[in-house]
């Protein structure tokens, strides 16, 4: 099993994390501050890091930045206060791969861990993960399938795929359930959706986790391109347009 580093200034929370993640079979490392967390990270090099954002001294965002500088492929999941989407966006802007709300719901934590594991699994097996964008067609709908995470580096591949579907009258952005979108990826998605609408081509999203869905809601992307869980629902919606 993988090793997880948990950074939180709350000792009781750390204690619970240790038991809880241990029960899932992870090897758990804990740190009560950002500085300590970074030291543990340097020593153990864990693939997954869970960090609280609000901490005295070095806060979660600083830890995130430092870790991403050291090893960009680390899965850093930030823990934000409930409903604090701004902070989540800030973390995503700093290339956090996911976020969960505090108090931590079991399902959310499990899902986040599952997605992180899936992304790690994919990264270990797939080469050129940023470029893993496929295109397909469902009638007049052009489907852009983003199989890995949507990040800044995905841009050339995504724009190319988008141009290749120039003749399609509708666009569906299909994500893997484990896909992560960081700040740059969100901007990219927003600009593509906007240009699609500007060209008179309705757009829709499917397959994203609820977590990112919320962020997209916040940014106003889903108002332009409705989000669906299943591909079929999205296609049905687009067919009606």
């Amino acid at each position: 099993m993988r090793t997880i580093l948990v950074i939180d200034d709350e000792r009781p929370t750390l204690q619970m994390f240790e038991l809880y993640l241990g029960a899932y079979g992870y090897r758990v490392l804990t740190a009560a501050s950002g500085e300590e967390g970074l030291a543990v990270f340097d020593a153990a090099n864990p693939p997954i890091v869970l960090t609280d954002i609000k901490m005295p001294g070095m806060d979660g965002l600083a830890v995130l930045k430092a870790i991403k500088e050291r090893r960009p492929e680390t899965e850093v999941v930030v823990i934000t206060g409930h409903g604090d989407t701004e902070l989540a966006l800030a973390a995503l802007g700093l290339r956090a791969t996911d976020f969960i709300d505090k108090p931590i719901r079991r399902e959310a934590l499990e899902a986040a861990l599952k997605r992180a594991d899936a992304r790690l699994d994919m990264a270990e097996t797939t080469v050129g993960r940023y470029g893993d964008v496929a295109i397909g067609r469902e009638g007049d709908v052009g489907v852009i399938h983003i199989r890995a995470s949507l990040v800044g580096e995905t841009e050339p591949y995504l724009t190319r795929a988008y141009r290749e579907l120039d003749d399609a009258s509708k666009v569906l952005f299909q994500f893997n359930p484990s896909a992560s979108i960081n700040g740059a990826g969100l901007d990219l998605l927003l600009s593509l959706v906007e240009s699609s609408l500007a060209a008179g081509r309705p757009a829709a999203l499917c397959g994203l986790s609820d977590n990112f869905g919320r962020v997209l809601d916040r940014l106003g992307v889903t108002a332009k391109a409705p989000r669906f869980v299943e591909k079929e629902q999205a296609l049905a919606h687009l067919a009606g347009r």
Partner: peptide
């Protein structure tokens, strides 16, 4: 309030 709630939540979830 989130701090204790979080710890409680995680403990009970465990």
């Amino acid at each position: 309030l989130n701090q204790p709630l979080n710890a409680i939540k995680m403990g009970s979830d465990y």
